[in-house]
Design a protein around this nucleic acid. Sequence first.
DNA 1: ATAACGTAGTTCGTATACGATCTATTAGAT
DNA 2: ATCTAATAGATCGTATACGAACTACGTTAT
Lengths: 233, 233
Amino acid sequence: MSSVHLDIRTLSDRLVDVVRDFILSGAIAPDVPIRQDALAAELRVSKIPLREALARLEQDGLVVSYANRGFFVRPMSPEEAEEIYALRIKLEPDAAAFACLKADDDDRERARLALEQFDIDAATQKPTVGALNRAFHLALVRPGGQRVTTNIVARLHILADRYVRKHLEPKGRFLNAEAEHHEMLEAWMKRRDARVRKLITQHLEHTLADLRTALRPAAAGQGSGSSKKRAKR
Amino acid sequence: MSSVHLDIRTLSDRLVDVVRDFILSGAIAPDVPIRQDALAAELRVSKIPLREALARLEQDGLVVSYANRGFFVRPMSPEEAEEIYALRIKLEPDAAAFACLKADDDDRERARLALEQFDIDAATQKPTVGALNRAFHLALVRPGGQRVTTNIVARLHILADRYVRKHLEPKGRFLNAEAEHHEMLEAWMKRRDARVRKLITQHLEHTLADLRTALRPAAAGQGSGSSKKRAKR
DNA sequence: ATAACGTAGTTCGTATACGATCTATTAGAT
DNA sequence: ATCTAATAGATCGTATACGAACTACGTTAT
């Protein structure tokens, strides 16, 4: 009966997801110009929807563009990681605590399912695990009905994903997080907002701490442009 | 000597500013489909760069698009205004306090100049006053060097601008804010971060309070679609 | 030999063109 | 008379095409 049909997606929309995955997975390296014709041909589309997708990703902070020089994947840096998690810690615990009070049964079921699917793919180390991790965390925030907040948090999840995938996923961090995730979900479903706030704060702080130790030794590289390229990969 | 030339802007980039002003000024009304061919012809450009601009604005939350139905300016709502200011209060005081400690003399001069220009246009009620207000507030945050934070705050400024222009600018609110602005700038330039944090928090709370009283009586309208259109304007 | 200049080739950005989808209007059926 | 089905018109989304800007290489002059 709903007059809106969200299931119909335009080609640009789908390309956003595809190209974002390319970037998050590292398939497109930072600081390398994205050849539009080549990438469009590889994806069997034309440049126009691809450029629209890249324009969207630029607003999300994943790529940068310079006029007549094209689009580039933004380099990663320890400073940016710190910033992203500082913002998440500021916004996400309150947002999720607020949302758990507003959530209905459907919302709770969706959150439960999101974590379930994440656990499955995390156990088997599937490449979809990053997206599912984001989906779970977002499922704790979205029911709040705060569009702008949800939007910003989702963006932060995407930005954070690159760092988690690159530095933590290989070390099996997702398995460590499993216990924390389930605690968070349980408190969230029981509408214990104060506890939700506390658990999510701790979870984010733990993840950031892990990230710090992973970034500190290998922190070189992406910092400020003129660095020696490692032959690795 | 800098190898990057930021001065060169693509047509899409400039269209973002143009269309954004159309939306913020109310020239394009909410919930009315944006006819791409017509708008492109009016602006003497083709649809492609216009669509790229709209795609960017959609990521910023100013417009929404539905596949094969086009772009629409997002309706305003008192709830969204509350949300935007709640986020600004959470982020902006800390960000500006941090930035005032990192700012150099050039940054301080830019901030001073931004407020000066704002005051000039605010006194004469020029239509550029909204953009200049945003520029001043952003000048207090940007020197922190926190790209993601600055980006998000800038987005919030844009979203807030619509509400301020529609409900507060006609009442001369900008003149009331002048004293607060100068207090903020003075503390910021003197690197008194704790005071900066406090003053900006108060400033935002005052603005929100003014907004509330302006929204409460005339809160009807954009809420949920089927509302009577007022003949006003 | 080095540096400056010029030229070929490539890539980007935008206009034009066309097929697909939607909306509104009209004809038809219950 | 109301509701359904079909058609015409308009709008959207994407592919193709072309001019503009940049990059890289080779040439010439100092």
